[in-house]
Computed example of a mutant assay.
Amino acid sequence: MGFETGALSARRWRQHVRCFLALERLASGEKIVAVAFDHGYTSQSAFAAMFKRHFGRAPSAFYR
C-alpha cells in the first residue's frame, strides 16, 4: 500500500514537507541556521534561497 503525492515528484514532495516543518520551527523562534542544517542544507543561504522560492520571502522576513 502506498500513498499519492499528486503531480509532485518525490523530491518536490519532500521539499514541501521540509518547508512546512521548517516553518513550524522558525515560528517557535529557532535560529535559521540550525533549522537549515537540521533539514539537510549545507548552508543558511541555500536554505534561504529555497525558502524564498517556496514562500515568496526570506525566512528572516517571514514572521515580521
Rank of each mutant, 00 (worst) to 15 (best):
R18E: 06
F37A: 13
V17N: 10
H54A: 10
G29T: 05
G2Y: 09
F20N: 04
H16S: 14
Q15M: 15
G40L: 09
A34E: 12
T5F: 14
A36H: 01
I32A: 00
F62V: 06
R25L: 14
R11C: 08
R11H: 04
G40F: 01
F51Q: 02
F47Q: 03
Y63R: 13
H16I: 07
K52G: 03
F51H: 06
T42M: 05
A61V: 13
M50H: 09
F3H: 05
T5P: 03
H39A: 12
L23H: 05
S43T: 10
A7V: 08
Y41W: 00
H16Y: 10
G56M: 15
A48R: 08
A36Y: 02
A58S: 07
D38H: 06
T42C: 12
C19N: 11
A46W: 00
F20T: 10
L21F: 03
Q15H: 07
S60L: 09
C19W: 13
C19I: 03
H16Q: 15
R18L: 15
A36L: 09
H16L: 15
A61F: 08
T5Y: 06
C19G: 05
S43M: 11
A34L: 15
Y41K: 13
S45P: 02
L8Y: 03
T42Q: 13
L21Y: 05
G29P: 00
W13H: 12
A22P: 01
K52Q: 07
R57C: 07
R57I: 03
H16D: 13
S43K: 11
S60T: 05
A10F: 06
G2D: 15
E24A: 13
M50G: 04
F37I: 14
G29D: 08
F55Q: 04
F47H: 06
D38F: 03
A46N: 05
R53N: 06
I32R: 06
S60E: 13
Y41E: 00
E30A: 07
L8W: 01
R64C: 07
A34M: 14
Q15P: 02
V17P: 04
R57H: 12
E4G: 02
G40W: 12
R25W: 05
R14D: 03
A27I: 05
H16G: 12
R57Y: 07
F47W: 00
E4K: 14
A36F: 00
E4N: 11
V33N: 11
Y41R: 11
I32P: 00
E24D: 09
R18C: 13
Q44V: 06
M1D: 15
Q44L: 10
A46S: 11
V33C: 11
T5D: 08
W13E: 12
S28E: 15
L23D: 01
S9G: 03
V33H: 01
F51T: 04
